[in-house]
Simulated assay, not measured.
Amino acid sequence: MASSLVLPSAQQLAGQWSVHVQQNAEQRCSFTLQVFGHALTGGAECLSRWLEGSVAGWIPTPDGIAVVSEEGRKLLFFSRQGDHYSSKVSADLTLLLTRTAP
């Protein structure tokens, strides 16, 4: 019998998060995922340095978290990997996303 992934609510994912380069934990950004408007605040500029575009928000998905621009364009996708999320930005850059506080 096949199982399907459950879409987490914004309330389940909202809170304090931290992202760092897998190969160098000192390259770190902290930010907050907000429920209202799916805003990403307090570190969007920092996260944008690894992307082509300005980060404005986020969207929960059944298998991860999508980071989006103001226009709603997906800039990055973090897939769930047990107790954290990861995103391979390029051949030599993988970002790890972990919750730091609800």
Rank of each mutant, 00 (worst) to 15 (best):
M1L: 12
M1D: 12
A2Y: 11
S3N: 09
S4L: 11
L5S: 08
V6K: 12
V6G: 01
L7A: 02
L7E: 02
P8R: 11
S9Y: 02
A10F: 01
A10L: 09
Q12A: 14
L13G: 00
G15V: 05
G15P: 06
Q16R: 10
W17L: 09
W17F: 10
W17D: 07
S18R: 15
V19M: 02
V19L: 00
H20P: 04
V21L: 15
Q22N: 09
Q23D: 08
N24F: 09
A25E: 09
A25I: 04
A25S: 14
E26K: 14
Q27M: 06
R28L: 12
C29T: 07
C29Y: 06
F31K: 04
F31M: 15
T32C: 08
L33H: 02
Q34C: 09
V35A: 11
G37L: 03
G37V: 03
H38W: 08
H38V: 00
A39N: 08
A39Y: 10
A39L: 15
L40D: 01
L40M: 03
T41I: 11
T41S: 15
T41E: 14
G42N: 10
G42D: 11
G42I: 00
A44C: 10
E45N: 14
C46M: 07
C46W: 04
L47V: 03
L47C: 05
S48K: 09
S48M: 06
R49P: 05
W50L: 00
W50D: 01
W50V: 03
L51Q: 10
G53C: 12
S54A: 14
A56G: 07
G57S: 06
W58T: 04
I59K: 15
P60M: 07
P60K: 03
T61F: 00
P62W: 06
P62I: 10
P62F: 08
P62M: 05
D63Q: 13
D63H: 11
D63M: 07
D63R: 13
D63F: 06
G64F: 01
G64K: 03
G64T: 00
G64Y: 07
I65C: 01
A66N: 09
A66P: 03
A66Q: 11
V67P: 01
V67K: 11
V67C: 11
V68Y: 01
V68P: 03
S69D: 10
S69E: 04
S69M: 12
G72F: 04
L75V: 00
L76D: 04
F77R: 14
F77N: 07
F78R: 00
F78T: 05
S79M: 04
R80C: 07
Q81R: 15
G82I: 01
G82K: 08
D83M: 07
D83N: 15
D83H: 12
H84P: 05
Y85N: 10
Y85W: 15
Y85F: 15
Y85M: 06
S86M: 13
S87A: 15
K88M: 11
V89Y: 11
V89E: 06
V89N: 06
S90F: 08
A91E: 11
A91K: 15
D92N: 13
L93Y: 07
T94A: 11
T94L: 09
L95I: 02
L95K: 10
L95S: 04
L95W: 07
L95V: 03
L96Q: 13
L96A: 02
L97I: 04
T98C: 13
T98H: 13
T98K: 15
R99G: 08
R99W: 06
R99T: 05
A101E: 14
P102N: 14
P102G: 13
